[in-house]
Amino acid sequence: MKKAPIVVLLFLVTLGLACQEPTPREADPAVLADTQADPAVEPAPPAPAPAPKMVLPPARIGLEHPTVFFQSKNSLSLGDSSLGWQVESVQATGGTIIQTNDPFLVHLTPEARSVTVTTWLRHPDQEEVIPINQHLEVVAVPLPQIEITMAGRAVNVLQGIRSNQLASLSARVMPDADFARLHPEDARYQVTDWQATLATGPRPKSEPIRATGTGMNLSSFRQIARAGDRLVIEVKKVVRRNWQGERKEVRMIFPPLSIPIN
C-alpha cells in the first residue's frame, strides 16, 4: 500500500496556512490613548477688561423759569448729583453767579443782554473735567405803572378834584403782575423823586413841591387853588430793589399827569 501522496498533501496544506497574512485586529482606543503623546495645551487667554462706562453729563442747564430777566435772580440747575457728577466750578460771562448750599443750584444775576454760563463737571469714573457752555438770552424787566392816590383812592384825571381836597398825595408803583408773581424779591419799587405844580393854563401858578418818598403834602396849594387850575404831577425817578438789596434805577419816561381842579 502506497502512503507517500498523503504525506505530501498534508505538507502542502500546512505550508499554505503558514503563508496566509494574519487578519489585523482593531486598535483598542485605550491603548491608542496611552501610546499617543498628548501635545502641550496652552491656557485660554484672559477675557478683555470691560471698557470704562461712559456717563454722559447733562445736556444743558436747567432754568427755574423759562425767561431770564435782567438784574434779577434767575435760579439755574447744573445737573443731578444722583448720577455721580461733581461741580468743579461755575462762571458767567455777562453776569454774576451766586453759590448756594446746594452745589448744583446757583443764582444768576445778568448784567448784559446775553449771558454765557460755563459749568465744569467731574465724574469719578472719568478722568477729564467736562465743561458745559450754555448761552442765555436776557429779557428786560417789564416796566411798572405809577398810580397817584389821594386819601387812599386813585385820582380820577377825568373827574378831577376840588381845591379843598388838596391835602396829601401818594405815588405807588405797581409792578407787572407776571413778573411780580415769578420774582417777588425783584419786584419792589419806590418813587424816589417826584413833584407837583399848581398851574393856570400853560403857566405855573406856584413853585413845585418836591418829594423823595412816596408821600407829598399839598396843603400849601389849598389857599391859592381855584376852579379851572390844574395839578401837574411829574415823576422824576423810580428805583427797583432786587433780591440782593441793590437799588436799580428804572429807565423809563413817565408822562406828566394833569389833574383838573373843580
Rank of each mutant, 00 (worst) to 15 (best):
N242E: 03
T116S: 15
A112T: 15
I261S: 11
Q195I: 07
T23E: 12
V139R: 14
P58L: 12
V157M: 04
M1S: 12
R203K: 12
T118L: 01
L105N: 14
Q86H: 01
V106P: 01
T118W: 01
E88V: 08
P58Q: 11
P208L: 06
Q223Y: 03
G94W: 06
I130M: 05
L12A: 12
V250S: 00
S81D: 14
M216P: 02
E128K: 02
E128W: 03
W120I: 00
G160H: 03
A196T: 14
A18P: 01
N164H: 13
H107G: 03
A33N: 10
W194H: 09
S219T: 15
T119M: 06
L108T: 04
Q195F: 09
S82K: 08
D193M: 07
G201A: 03
R172Q: 15
A92S: 10
R251L: 06
L12P: 00
F104R: 02
K3L: 04
E21S: 12
F104M: 02
T109W: 03
T149Y: 04
N133W: 05
S82M: 09
P256K: 13
L257R: 14
V239A: 07
V191T: 14
N133V: 02
R241N: 01
I130A: 07
I253G: 00
L182M: 13
K73D: 13
D193R: 12
W85V: 13
A171Q: 11
D125A: 02
L218G: 02
L12G: 09
Q145T: 14
L182C: 01
T118A: 03
D193P: 02
L257S: 07
G62H: 08
F221E: 11
A199T: 07
Q145N: 15
D176C: 02
